[in-house]
């Protein structure tokens, strides 16, 4: 089975098991699959990723940059995408999977339509970020790291976003917002979570 066939078999549906054996074996035994220009799914984003990888000359040490780009394009890294990256960089999928799961920044699950990141750095923590987080958790009915069942809101925490001077800070859809009280935070997320419980 060629790598391409493996890929097309997987389609674009995240699958449970990682076809470790298959892919590594084929990747080693056959000529390097340098030109699967069209991803079988026909998704244009694969082409954009491929161009990016090509510009980095398929160097294996660019794995983290490639994963950043992949996440930027797709929003999250599913198994199919990780296998694609592995194949493009001629790395064993185990290595790609290992790196993707090591770093907090990479997410293997899709995010909600809106994201809310509560900074839990020391300055924010001593100024009550834990209460802000608890209020949102209670309101949305999810724990930090979770997404509401209607995929409207993902609630995340950050180790420190470096906005300590304006603590406690919360990032709503990418916009850092200063001095948040639990009430402020609820006000912001309420519109996003209508009927999500």
């Amino acid at each position: 089975m060629t790598v391409l066939a493996v890929l097309s078999n997987h389609g674009h549906v995240p699958h449970a098991a990682f076809s470790l054996m298959e892919t590594t074996v084929t990747a080693r035994s056959e000529a390097p699959p340098r030109k699967p220009l069209e991803h079988p799914s026909g998704d244009k984003r694969f082409k954009m990723l491929e161009v990016f990888i090509k510009r980095l000359q398929h160097r294996q040490d660019t794995l983290i940059e490639v994963l950043h780009k992949a996440q930027e394009l797709f929003g999250f890294l599913d198994n199919d995408l990780l296998i694609y990256v592995a194949q493009q960089l001629r790395l064993p999928p185990s290595r790609v999977f290992g790196v993707a799961t090591f770093y907090h920044y990479f997410t293997l699950k899709p995010k909600g339509a809106h994201t809310c990141v509560v900074c839990m750095g020391t300055a924010c923590y001593v100024k009550g970020a834990d209460r802000v987080l608890a209020a949102i958790e209670q309101h949305a009915g999810i724990k930090a790291g979770g997404t509401t069942s209607d995929n409207q809101l993902s609630l995340l925490t950050a180790r420190c976003i470096g906005a300590c001077g304006i603590a406690p800070a919360v990032v709503y859809d990418g916009a850092v917002t200063a001095r948040q009280s639990p009430e402020d935070a609820l006000e912001r997320v309420k519109g996003w979570t209508n009927g999500s419980r």
């Binding site: 090591f102 907090h104 180790r159």
Partner: peptide
């Protein structure tokens, strides 16, 4: 520029270099 991916341990110099090389930090 190499952009980190959210691992505190990468502030340690040998972990940081592993990360630049595209490995787990």
């Amino acid at each position: 520029i190499r952009i980190g991916a959210g691992a505190f341990v990468c502030g340690e110099e040998t972990a940081l270099m592993a990360s630049i090389e595209g490995e787990r930090g």
